[in-house]
Amino acid sequence: MADLSVKVAGVTFNNPLIAASGTFGFGREYGEFYPLSTLGGISCKGITLKRRDGNPPPRIAETPSGILNAVGLQNPGVDVFIREDLPWLKQQGTVVIANIAGNTVDEYCQMAEKLSETDVDMIELNISCPNVKSGGVQFGTSCESVENITAAVRKSCKKPLIVKLSPNVTDIASIAQAAEAAGADAISMINTLTGMRIDIHTRRPIIRNNTGGLSGAAVFPVAVRMVWQVANAVKLPIIGMGGISTWEDAAEMLMAGATALQIGTVLFSDPYAPVKINEGLNRFLDENNMTSVTDLTKTVIPW
């Protein structure tokens, strides 16, 4: 039995698997399949300063080996999260990450301040949501804006700060460097790739928002490539995500440079995927006489 625990920015996770924001709500539903301590951590549904109702449906479309979604950050607001969901989440024996999104830098800072006074374990800065009209990804697509918002939130944030990167950029390594320079404690990546599907009979986009974010197995090789590029550009720990569906994918993402992992879309077809991925990783480590999952991180031998 290998040691599956990992440490990111001083926070210990019992295993490297974290539920990805937006696929897991605030944990209550998947807590009806297995104890949430099955997961190393939970990145909660993205929260905003005030309640948001999200986009009109349809909000999802299936794609080859993936899905497009455009939920539009439906959430009850940071205060309701702190009052009604966080106390319960903190009793589940898993690391709790609050994922925050805003329309302005000031909103991000206000939320970071509020959450710093709670016992949330980490804060994930969502500057990569492609499905809202203002805010979200607009903060995440240039080095200047990433540096600016990271530095501002850093001042308001007493918790370890993860910056979640968008893949919809020209050079993701330089974006990661900007976050590092501005005081981020970790990088999580990748958010979804912007995509679109059209119903050829109605000529209407399937998603009401016209475009959505692509996730699932289809984006996995893109995510591996980007994690590898960023791992070569920054010293920060990376939480790798994007289409991880099997334990082999998990091992591959760790080898590319990730210290921990987030999984999301796979849960929709197999809610038990975290259990299976952890079992597979453990077996792989044992078979290779490795004692810790951290021994896999950034062990790719590039040509």
Binding site: G22, T23, F24, G25, E29, Y30, E32, K45, D53, G54, N55, P56, P57, P58, R59, I60, A61, I67, N69, V71, Q74, I206, L267, F268, P271
Partner: peptide
């Protein structure tokens, strides 16, 4: 009916607007 994801209420994609206590919510 609405296009659905997780099936258990976690992913929030199959939204429907309803009126509860005079307020419209998803």
């Amino acid at each position: 009916e609405e296009r659905m994801g997780c099936g258990v209420g976690a992913c929030l994609v199959c939204a429907v607007k309803v009126r509860k206590n005079g307020e419209e919510i998803m």
